[in-house]
């Protein structure tokens, strides 16, 4: 008896960002438009579409980002902020959406961690069992903290039922993404050969200082916004260039802090209290509590700090761009 086997092909389920159109220059406190075009294919289970954007913390995205949608099926509506208490389904109640996206994707291509995923979901549930195209229109007010910024945005498209569900095989070739897609900002189509353009870096000006997420920094202080009674982690990334401290066996942190009255607090010797810890070849790190590190009296707040790195003898002073000019840090409260 011939046995006839019927092959059942299950066609379902993919997410595919078709395009992202965003500006690559902006001015602090101004609003920019961002448009995403996304193809979705579902299997008829109802869900809300989830859209998230990776933004600097200082931009306070939950207050400064709005978005709405239309589809080729005639749907239209707005996205609403995902409640912070709503857990991302794949974590089984452990993490909310912003935390889960940060743990999964980090800050993508950016070099500073001072960022967050701002998560929205569609105002209505949708049920469809075919391919549809959704257009997401965003309005983003950049630079709420008034600080000049170079940063690379990133986008996430998913849905409320499955979240970061692992791929389970029901993908339609050639669509590689099933339940969700994370899409870093594409290169600037107008400046594909520009050093910032080709990495999709957005340059925001018109403010003060600079928080540069787009380039590795010779030194960083994390959190970017902190105060006298925070723990601040200072990194010296000596691997980035041939500074005076390249391949030095020991590196120390020299720093001078200024309080609001203009008093100075100086750390400029080489002891265990300011020695940096090697965490990789030519990369050093130390976490300080400024009040303790500088001996600041209770009730006094620091305003700024300038710092350099040096060798055991205190002679190879290394600051901005490898020169003796100190790095600057402003103590501030963020958004």
């Amino acid at each position: 008896m011939a046995l006839v086997v019927l092959g059942i092909v299950i066609t379902c389920c993919y997410t595919e960002v078709q395009s992202v159109i965003q500006p690559y220059t902006a001015t602090v406190h101004k609003t920019i438009p961002i448009t995403l075009s996304v193809k979705l294919h579902n299997n008829g289970n109802p869900y809300k579409m989830v859209v998230a954007v990776l933004l600097p913390n200082g931009w306070a995205g939950s207050k400064n980002l709005t978005m709405d949608y239309t589809s080729d099926q005639g749907d239209k509506g707005t996205y609403v902020l995902m409640p912070s208490t709503t857990t991302e389904p794949s974590t089984k109640g452990l993490y909310n959406w912003p935390t889960s996206l940060l743990k999964t994707f980090g800050v993508v291509n950016n070099y500073i961690s001072d960022m967050q995923w701002v998560v929205f979901q569609s105002d209505k549930e949708y049920t469809f069992n075919k391919e549809i195209t959704v257009t997401v229109n965003m309005q983003l007010t950049v630079g709420a903290d008034g600080i000049n910024t170079n940063c690379m945005l990133a986008y996430f498209i998913g849905e409320s039922q499955d979240g970061l569900h692992a791929i389970d095989g029901y993908i339609d070739n050639p669509h590689p993404y099933e339940y969700y897609q994370m899409y870093p900002a594409p290169p600037d189509p107008l400046k594909p050969n520009d050093p910032l353009g080709k990495i999709g870096c957005m340059v925001v000006t018109g403010g003060e200082g600079l928080e540069d997420f787009c380039h590795p920094q010779l030194a960083t202080a994390d959190p970017f916004k902190s105060q006298t009674d925070d723990f601040i982690t200072v990194d010296f990334n000596g691997y980035l260039g041939q500074t005076l401290l390249f391949n030095q066996p020991v590196v120390y942190l020299h720093a001078t802090a200024f309080d609001e009255a203009g008093n100075k607090y100086i750390v400029n010797t080489q002891t265990d209290n300011n020695k940096m810890n090697p965490v990789a070849t030519n990369k050093y790190e130390r976490t300080i509590w400024p009040r303790q590190f500088f001996g600041v009296p209770k009730g006094v707040s620091l305003k700024t700090m300038e710092y350099t790195f040096t060798d055991a003898g205190g002679n190879k002073v290394t600051g901005l761009n490898g020169t003796p000019t100190p790095f600057q840090y402003v103590f501030r409260c963020g958004e």
Binding site: S113, P223, F231, N277, E285, T287
Partner: peptide, 15 residues
């Protein structure tokens, strides 16, 4: 245990 902005700093060098 001490966590700052989601990063464990309990045994961070200098803490």
């Amino acid at each position: 245990r001490a966590v700052r902005n989601g990063t464990d700093i309990t045994n961070a060098f200098g803490v």
